[in-house]
Simulated assay, not measured.
Amino acid sequence: MISWLDPQDPFPPVDRALGPASDAPGLLAASRELSPQRLLLAYRQGIFPWYSAGQPVLWWSTDPRMVLAPDALRISSTLRKTLRRTLRDPDWEIRVDDDFLAVMHACAMTPRDGQEGTWITDEIIAAYGALHRNGMAHSVESWYRGERVGGLYGVALGRMFYGESMFAHRTDASKIALAALCAFLGNHGVAMIDCQQETDHLASLGARPIARAEFVAHVRAATMQPEITPWRFDKSVLERWTASPAGPAA
């Protein structure tokens, strides 16, 4: 049985989440509301929302937890060539927070294999938009010839980043944004990106599952560190990924 949360109720301990033998491993609680304040409490405790339109807000803490160390991003030879081309081609740009809500909408509209509809509802967009306006959620965007062709968004607390979703309207456009994010976060001492759930796609990019207890302990320490400021960079952050064939996670 999961907990129903009224607006002032705290989250239950994450070890009360449903176990692997249940129909919903990792499901911890449900609530009616999704406020920015509730989101921040969740992320600081290793909890995230994931639900569909028409459902209550469902809160999860999966075990194991999928994470990506910035330096572990797996760069294929093809992607490495793409990154090199991105560096030298003025038609390509990398922008941060150019239009956070547009990135969220693009992620919501992108079809996913095995998934009907989207979990990025209007309620989700409103809540994360509020975090963005307060400097706690960011987008990284790939632009080609003045058009946004890929990107991602997530939440940043201290030296912890929680990845939420990506989209691509051009080959490797989301991977360019991810490489830029990883290089940027690595330069600022971020050791872990939360990827939430284990998938083959995330594993192919270098993500790995770790025990929930290890993840929560890392989150507790990382979110106490100073915030990253400013969130401002250009495509030069990719140089370390293309300098040699043996770059990060070659």
Score class of each variant (00 low, 15 high):
residue 175 K to E: 05
residue 198 E to V: 11
residue 204 S to C: 04
residue 201 H to E: 03
residue 206 G to R: 12
residue 186 G to H: 15
residue 180 A to Q: 13
residue 216 V to F: 01
residue 177 A to D: 15
residue 200 D to R: 13
residue 167 F to G: 11
residue 197 Q to R: 04
residue 195 C to A: 13
residue 202 L to E: 02
residue 173 A to L: 13
residue 187 N to Q: 14
residue 200 D to P: 03
residue 166 M to N: 02
residue 205 L to G: 04
residue 183 A to R: 15
residue 177 A to H: 12
residue 164 E to V: 07
residue 166 M to S: 12
residue 165 S to H: 05
residue 183 A to D: 11
residue 218 H to T: 08
residue 199 T to D: 04
residue 171 T to K: 14
residue 178 L to Q: 05
residue 164 E to R: 08
residue 175 K to S: 10
residue 164 E to Q: 12
residue 185 L to T: 10
residue 165 S to P: 04
residue 215 F to G: 00
residue 202 L to T: 01
residue 168 A to N: 12
residue 195 C to P: 01
residue 205 L to A: 04
residue 198 E to N: 09
residue 205 L to Y: 06
residue 214 E to Q: 14
residue 175 K to R: 13
residue 199 T to E: 03
residue 162 Y to N: 10
residue 172 D to A: 08
residue 174 S to Y: 12
residue 214 E to N: 12
residue 187 N to F: 06
residue 194 D to Y: 01
residue 210 I to F: 04
residue 166 M to F: 04
residue 211 A to W: 01
residue 198 E to T: 04
residue 200 D to T: 09
residue 195 C to D: 00
residue 186 G to D: 14
residue 187 N to H: 11
residue 215 F to D: 00
residue 194 D to L: 06
residue 214 E to F: 01
residue 197 Q to A: 09
residue 170 R to N: 11
residue 215 F to Y: 15
residue 216 V to Y: 03
residue 167 F to Y: 12
residue 184 F to K: 13
residue 182 C to Y: 11
residue 205 L to I: 05
residue 208 R to V: 09
residue 164 E to H: 07
residue 198 E to K: 02
residue 170 R to M: 15
residue 197 Q to C: 00
residue 208 R to I: 04
residue 192 M to L: 15
residue 176 I to D: 08
residue 189 G to R: 09
residue 165 S to N: 06
residue 199 T to F: 02
residue 166 M to L: 10
residue 167 F to R: 07
residue 197 Q to N: 07
residue 185 L to P: 03
residue 193 I to M: 14
residue 168 A to L: 08
residue 185 L to D: 07
residue 177 A to E: 13
residue 175 K to T: 03
residue 217 A to M: 00
residue 174 S to E: 07
residue 197 Q to E: 03
residue 210 I to Q: 06
residue 188 H to R: 15
residue 198 E to A: 06
residue 175 K to G: 03
